[in-house]
């Protein structure tokens, strides 16, 4: 699992690569928590290079979504591969994290 983040104004964009499962979910969590700042209005998780996410990884996403909600910020996903999209659809997590086709679409959704 690799995590890279860039900032666009008050939004944070996080690129997640590789696999997130029980063995590295804790690292995933601390990397995300380190990247997110109190002032962030929106966080976009670009999952274009994410091959797989297990329930342990989804739990980290839920934790992050809950804590962002407390600071009135949003968590969005974008560019999901077919298999990750399916995981989000079956688990129903696309209800918690709105999923967009591309990074541009996600940024646009944050502006609206």
């Amino acid at each position: 699992m690799e995590l890279k983040s860039t900032r666009e104004g008050t939004n944070l964009i996080v690129d997640v690569e590789g696999r997130v499962d029980g063995t590295n979910a804790m690292d995933f969590q601390s990397a995300l928590e380190d990247a997110i700042q109190q002032s962030d209005q929106g966080v976009i998780m670009d999952m274009g290079q994410l091959q797989y996410i297990s329930s342990a990884g989804l739990r980290v996403i839920l934790l992050v979504a809950k804590s962002l909600q407390k600071q009135n910020a949003k968590l969005l996903g974008c560019a999901l591969s077919e298999s990750v999209r399916e995981i989000f659809a079956i688990s129903g997590f696309d209800k918690i994290v709105p999923v967009h086709e591309s990074r541009a679409d996600a940024l646009k959704a944050l502006e609206d």
Binding site: S55, L58, L62, I90, S91, G92, F93, K95, I96
Partner: peptide, 14 residues
């Protein structure tokens, strides 16, 4: 066949 739902304990009122 798929039916709409969400993992339990995530969100109440689903």
């Amino acid at each position: 066949p798929y039916t709409d739902g969400l993992a339990l304990a995530v969100l109440s009122g689903v």
